[in-house]
Amino acid sequence: MRRHQHLSIAGGRIVLAGAALGLAVAPSFLDAGGLTVLTEFLCLLVLALMWNLLAGYADIVTVGQHAFVGVGAYAFYGAVVLLGVDPYLAFAAAALMAFAVALPAMVIVFRLRAAYLAVGTWVVAEVLMLIAGKLPNFGFGSGVSLPVRVAREFGARPDVRFATIYWLAFALAAATFASTWLLLRSRIGLGLTAMRDNEEAAGATGVNLVRARIICFLWTAPFLGLAGAIITLQKLRISPPASFSIIDWTVFVIFNVVIGGIGSLEGPILGTALFFILREYLAQLGTWHLIILGSLSIVIILIEPGGLWGLLRRVLGGDLIPVSHRARPGFETNRKS
């Protein structure tokens, strides 16, 4: 590797670390509006990291990820409002419930052939959303608001509350990122990366790939559920169409990861950040917003399936966030075939 590449990778890492530091001190200088946007960003980042873990590493292309966000939202509401559980403990309920739902979902999803799997996850998500609309204590199809007393538990004054919710989102995003990074660096991650790059090498690593994929699928559920709980706390309302929104929690997330770069840890971060920057300009375009994102994602797939990060990585010459232990100079050429 040449010297200037070492320098640019170091520069990239400084930018990344600077952004993380900026997020860590954001509440001290941002107003409520700014914190709300950053909270949304962190929640979408969690969703992007989880979708990327499945589609980019575990070969599970899900279109039903919004199901677990919705289950988390409903479980949080059920625990805190209907059962009167301590609001902080209710987060645990959201994570556990999402995990519990993931178990039977896994049985269905893993029986489907590869090409069918994506739509299979979508069917499961539809069923869960329709069932949510049939729950009597959760306001049926139109949903229900979170009582003010619950919101007050996170801070009596709005500015304190927004900061608290922000910290929760920050903690979730940090935990998601760190644990996913560790998972990818473990034998499981190594085996999955080998499977993605070369089937034969994967057999040699001795990792049980079916088990590794199941672990990844179950892994994502509690994180998605927790994101659903934080989103609920921020929006102060649950309803089937909003809590189980395929556009917000799956479509945008897929576009973010595809545009940013699928199959890397930098890609989802880059894509989600870009999404929030573009949203400032594109949101007022209404339906054109989605048309532009959809077209952009197709163009990117045709040019570089590794996304913007894949293009940037060629310039920098290496990863900012090292995932695999092995040196991989031959990686690009092997995958191009």
């Binding site: 589609a55 070969d59 292309v61 279109v63 590869a114 090409a115 799997l117 994506a118 479509v251 897929i254 576009f255 595809v258 699928i262 209404g286 339906t287 054109w288 989605l290 048309i291 994102l293 959809g294 077209s295 994602s297 197709i298 797939i301 399936p305």
Partner: peptide
């Protein structure tokens, strides 16, 4: 299976929103 899924997924969103428009 990943790439054709993602491309047709993109097409799906483009068609829906194009029709809405």
């Amino acid at each position: 299976v990943l790439l054709p899924l993602l491309v047709t997924f993109g097409l799906s969103i483009i068609v829906q929103n194009g029709l809405l428009e």
